[in-house]
Nucleic acid binder design. Sequence first.
DNA 1: TAAGAGAGACTTACAACGTAAGGGGAAGAC
DNA 2: GTCTTCCCCTTACGTTGTAAGTCTCTCTTA
Lengths: 227, 227
Amino acid sequence: MASQAPAPRTPLSRDRVLRAAVQIADADGLDAVTMRRIGEALGAEAMSLYYHVANKNDLLDGIVDVLIDELNEAVDRLVVVKDWKAAMRHRILTARAVLLRHPWAPRLLESRTTMRPAVVIYHDRLVGLMRSGGFSYDLAHHALHALGSRALGFSQELFDPANANPNPDADARMLAELAEQVPNLAGMLAEVAHDDPDSTIGWCDDQQEFEFALDLILDGLARLASR
Amino acid sequence: MASQAPAPRTPLSRDRVLRAAVQIADADGLDAVTMRRIGEALGAEAMSLYYHVANKNDLLDGIVDVLIDELNEAVDRLVVVKDWKAAMRHRILTARAVLLRHPWAPRLLESRTTMRPAVVIYHDRLVGLMRSGGFSYDLAHHALHALGSRALGFSQELFDPANANPNPDADARMLAELAEQVPNLAGMLAEVAHDDPDSTIGWCDDQQEFEFALDLILDGLARLASR
DNA sequence: TAAGAGAGACTTACAACGTAAGGGGAAGAC
DNA sequence: GTCTTCCCCTTACGTTGTAAGTCTCTCTTA
């Protein structure tokens, strides 16, 4: 009998696996990224992935690579600016714009302890900018620590409104109950509520707060560098 | 036949469960905190814990409570200082000292999205200090965001030396291989290596870097507050 | 052209996890 | 003496990462 045309399938590859993983994370979050789910997305079995990826940890590292490559690409497209501070600010805010497309990125990056080359390269460019601004290596080093994850465009928020309480009222209610115990926060909230009656405890503008902190740090560094 | 004296056992309680969980985390890390393991530590079955704890998420929230209570206790023992900046600095560094006793704390705190009263209370005191220093509510609010997790005594480091590569040489080797691609970092490393031949990529003094960043932020805030 | 050697996928199976569902016994209430 | 309520245990299920082994193409080499 004539043999059926075999199911046309593009072969797996590390790259295809990683891209599928990123798509799943974008769509359904980091927890949805399981070996079986990736296999399903690629029309393969979970165990087949292990030929292209050592284990789950390696997979996550690979996702970071894909992510930071995207980030480096966006950031290297920027026009060159002479002022180091403006350049760093622009670079970091561009990085942030990329990360905002992948809400799972902060959690993933925080979970990684190994150094990935792409991340190292990203930070190298920042040091380069600071050097051009007259930074000593020592100050540049301090600066990297001071920026921390902010260098990559995100700040670790204790209460992330993105994955926060589904009913914001509960937060406000708890704060109201605690009012006697937290007079200062209660006062703060009251003032904000006066200015903007619709506001709840999640009144913060993430982008604005991020820029505030970034500028605070960059201004402080500028003062130290100009000594 | 005479009934045996029943095994004398102290009854479970939410508090005992949480304390056992903290002990396990201290000893073997956060991943070792499983329901079965806690049960074992208490001479009970895993499912028995569910009478005192709603689920694993609730358990983790409870651990945060225990942790932050310990923190608030230490911090409230501090002598009162007039200068708000010195007071905040002292308070935050004290909080840090507590967290250093629980290396798993940062990862846990970052993973929590719900607001715990103890955490809210802690931040309220910080706002109080800032108010005493003449901060508007608006500036205090910005300040909390700028500090982020640093307010609690830790900064999210991308490469945490605590749980980093077991063989630090590998990192240095990778950096050497990347030297052409990361000239700035290579230069930075070279200078540090010159000053201290024993240093590797993990040369950073965590405490010193934390204080540098903290002071950078506090000084910046002081400048804004005095306007 | 036949035989051998991988490369690349699949099959099966297991331990560990969180937890749903229900059972049982002891202590106090009526 | 019965009932209720509290507290703990037993059993079992679905999901996860992954160890171990197998099958099947395709390419190389004699």
